[in-house]
Design a protein around this nucleic acid. Structure first.
Lengths: 224, 224
DNA sequence: TGTGAATGTAAGCACCGATTACACTAATTG
DNA sequence: CAATTAGTGTAATCGGTGCTTACATTCACA
């Protein structure tokens, strides 16, 4: 049965149930947007629904985000922050003089994060929210991560650990491999033969190792 | 493209400026949807705009497609048809007893087609239009293409041309690599350092060769 | 204490997907 | 050759969306 309409008189000396000012609307909207993305993909995020969940009028979000894209950009920034933190934690576990092992940890952290945070990853990777006004930081941060991976492989090459002289194809192939796997996971290419997350992560590790074995110099034992 | 000024199927004396029946609305709608996708990505496709371009009322398309997704599925089917034709042409150029060369041609045709038909590829790959009612054929066709690539690599393995015993990681890595590159192209990861299509295709070829070299058995000269 | 900036609401715009009732045409059939 | 019927278009309408404008309320600070 429907709840009886409450008396309109404000409760005496009690904090009004709905203060005019929300207090932390921006934060709540970003969180709501993420929740919506987790449920139905980035395309299912709507400003109005986020406002609804925040218990606020449909126009209110536009005080904090000039457009839906701006909201999504904020989500992407939050995602990028967490992503980068995860990557740096993973890299801190390997000494700097082992570039190939660092590269492996980098890739593994990338894949794991993408698998465990598909909504975040979708929003980051779609690339739609990098070209807007406030997204300069996002692009720069992303470029830094790429540059880090480039440095690792350059060092590995300098140490003679790679079997190729040309670095550029290796870099792009590495990015494509890892990005492709993460996106296949998001785009439902694995749903068909129902994969659990743990198994997906093991597969991710396997293809990463395959790639590294492919670009690394073979153990000299075989070379006589 | 040459605009269709008027439908030709009413060869009566004076074709009225707007015959009540369009004649080939379904086809025109699919074409319009593709055009829209080419302009602003798959998300920019709207049934109403397609109807507008077909010179027809907003409700008309729903006589041919029960939903927007159904329209997109039709586009995906058309895309899949063309994609598969291209692949099979490419495969017909290599004899069946050279599985690794066939695999290379497969990958190359895949990448080239994805680069030259980004809108089609986005719609196919998004995976959103595979689970609907009429999409059984689409899924099946796609599964067949995957099975083909699997057979090629299995043959290569049987011939002793691969350096790994485990096929599954190689298969997934190959798919991820190629899919990842194609999607990076679509998602704008290459736009930043402005790449021409021809250059993109050369890069695609390079990473494909890198991958094949990585999984293939090294020439025994080095192992002696 | 007063005043402007910040941040909410209310109302309304255009566009969208989708449905329904109705109009017109083409094809089948008696 | 009519007459019916199935197919395909229009018109009007609904609820949802992004976004804007005008107005209301509250906060922060001079």
């Amino acid at each position: 049965m429907p709840a009886l309409p409450r008396p309109k008189h404000r409760p005496l000396r009690r904090p009004p149930p709905k203060p005019y000012h929300h207090g932390d609307l921006r934060r709540v909207l970003v969180d709501a947007a993420l929740q919506l993305a987790e449920r139905g993909g980035a395309a299912a995020v709507s400003v109005r629904e986020a406002a609804r969940r925040a218990g606020v009028s449909p126009g209110a979000p536009f005080r904090h985000f000039e457009s839906r894209d701006a909201l999504m950009t904020a989500v992407a920034e939050e995602a990028q922050r967490r992503f980068r933190a995860e990557i740096e934690t993973a890299l801190s576990e390997v000494p700097a003089d082992q570039p190939l092992r660092r590269f492996r940890n980098f890739g593994l952290a990338y894949l794991r994060w993408a698998i465990r945070n598909p909504a975040y990853f979708e929003i980051i990777s779609s690339g739609r929210y990098f070209d807007h006004d406030g997204a300069g930081e996002l692009s720069r941060d992303n470029a830094e991560l790429i540059a880090m991976s480039e440095r690792m492989l350059a060092e590995a090459l300098a140490q003679g650990a790679l079997r190729t002289g040309e670095l550029k194809p290796v870099l792009i192939a590495g990015r494509a491999l890892v990005y492709g796997f993460a996106r296949m996971n998001i785009d439902g290419h694995f749903r068909r033969w129902g994969v659990v997350k743990a198994e997906t992560e093991r597969t991710a590790e396997a293809i990463l190792d395959l790639f590294i074995e492919g670009i690394a110099k073979r153990p000299p034992a075989a070379a006589g």
